[in-house]
C-alpha cells in the first residue's frame, strides 16, 4: 500500500536525520555531564570538521572512510586543547560564564572557517552517492543506512567504554561527584579534556554524515539547535535521552513535513523544545536534583 510505504519512508528518513541529531546531543551531554559547560561551540566544531573533510576528500583526493577518522582525530585534538587551555580557566564560575565563553569560541571558529574557506556551499563525493537499497519493499538511500549504522556503532562503543573500561567508569564517577573523584586519585582534569576530545570526535562524525545531506556550508552549525531540542526532550544529562530525543525530533520533523501545513517542519524542533520545557521540564529520562538550603 502506498500509505505504508510512505510512512516507512518517512520513518527511515526521520530516524536517519534523527540519528544525527542524537549524535549532536550526545556530544553535548558528554561535555555537560563532565564539566557542567553546555558547549555552544559544538555545532561549529561539527561545521569545521565538515569543511576539513571536504578539504581532505576534494582537495587531497582522500576517500570518505579515510577522511572521517582523520577529521575526527583533528577535531578531538582541537577540543581537547580547547578544554585544557581555555575552558578550564572558567572552572568553578557560574554556568553563564561557560555559555558565554563557548558562544565566543563558536563565533571565532565560524569566523575563521568563513575567512579561510569562503562562504560558498560545497559538496564532497561519497562512496555511496546516489546508491539505494531495497529492504522489505521499501527504497532506502544507502546514505541513511550508513548514518544509522555509524550511530549505532558509536553509541554502542561509547556505552561499552563508559560502563566497562576503567577510564569510562572513572569518567562517570567524576561527573557524579568531582570532589570525591579527585580524592579517589582519579585524574579529573585529564579526564575532562578526554571527554571533550571524545565530544569533538563525535561532532566531527556528525558533521561528516550530515554534510552529504545538507551540503558543506557555514550554516551547518545550526544543527546545534536541533541537538539542544533533542537534549531537552530526552532529558538534560541523560545519555540515553540524547539519542532517543534526537530520533524523536527527527521523526517528528519528517512526519510534520507531510501531515502539517507548510512551514511547520522547519520549526517543529523548536516548538517541541519550548513545549517540553513548559509542560515537562525534566524531559524523558532526566535525573532529579534538588538544592538543600
Amino acid at each position: 500500500m502506498e500509505n505504508v510505504t510512505q510512512i516507512a519512508q518517512l520513518t527511515i528518513n526521520g530516524m536517519s536525520i534523527g540519528a544525527i541529531y542524537g549524535l549532536v546531543a550526545l556530544g553535548l551531554v558528554l561535555t555537560y555531564k563532565s564539566t557542567e559547560v553546555l558547549n555552544f561551540a559544538h555545532g561549529d566544531v561539527l561545521m569545521f570538521s565538515a569543511f576539513l573533510g571536504w578539504g581532505l576528500i576534494e582537495g587531497l583526493g582522500a576517500s570518505f572512510w579515510l577522511a572521517l577518522p582523520a577529521a575526527a582525530i583533528v577535531a578531538a585534538a582541537a577540543t581537547w586543547l580547547l578544554e585544557q587551555r581555555v575552558v578550564r580557566i572558567i572552572a568553578g564560575q557560574p554556568q553563564f560564564a561557560g555559555v558565554m565563553l563557548t558562544i565566543g569560541l563558536a563565533f571565532m571558529i565560524r569566523g575563521m572557517v568563513s575567512m579561510g574557506f569562503g562562504p560558498e556551499s560545497r559538496n564532497f563525493t561519497t562512496p555511496w552517492a546516489g546508491q539505494i537499497s531495497h529492504v522489505g519493499g521499501i527504497v532506502i538511500a544507502d546514505l541513511n543506512l550508513i548514518i544509522i549504522a555509524v550511530t549505532l556503532v558509536i553509541t554502542a562503543g561509547l556505552y561499552g567504554f563508559l560502563t566497562r573500561s576503567a577510564v569510562g567508569v572513572a569518567i562517570q564517577a567524576a561527573s557524579q561527584n568531582q570532589l570525591a573523584a579527585y580524592l579517589s586519585g582519579i585524574r579529573v582534569k585529564r579526564l575532562n579534556s578526554l571527554v571533550w576530545g571524545i565530544s569533538g570526535a563525535i561532532a566531527a562524525v556528525s558533521g561528516m554524515l550530515l554534510a552529504p545531506i545538507t551540503m558543506v556550508d557555514i550554516g551547518l552549525w545550526a544543527v546545534l539547535l536541533k541537538g539542544l531540542a533533542a537534549l531537552v526532550l530526552g532529558g538534560f544529562g541523560s545519555v540515553r535521552g540524547a539519542i532517543v530525543g534526537g530520533l524523536l525530533i527527527g521523526l517528528i520533523e519528517q512526519f510534520s513535513g507531510v501531515f502539517l501545513p507548510d512551514g511547520f517542519k522547519d520549526v517543529m524542533a523548536y516548538l517541541v523544545l519550548i513545549g517540553v520545557l513548559i509542560v515537562w521540564p525534566r524531559g524523558l529520562f532526566s535525573e532529579a536534583h534538588g538544592r538543600r538550603v
Binding site: 565563553l101 558562544i103 565566543g104 569566523g111 572557517v113 575567512m115
Partner: peptide, 14 residues
C-alpha cells in the same frame, strides 16, 4: 567577507 566581523566578536567576548 563577514567572517572577520564574526571572528572579532567572538574574540572580544572570549
Amino acid at each position: 567577507q563577514s567572517g572577520l566581523e564574526v571572528f572579532m566578536f567572538g574574540l572580544v567576548l572570549t
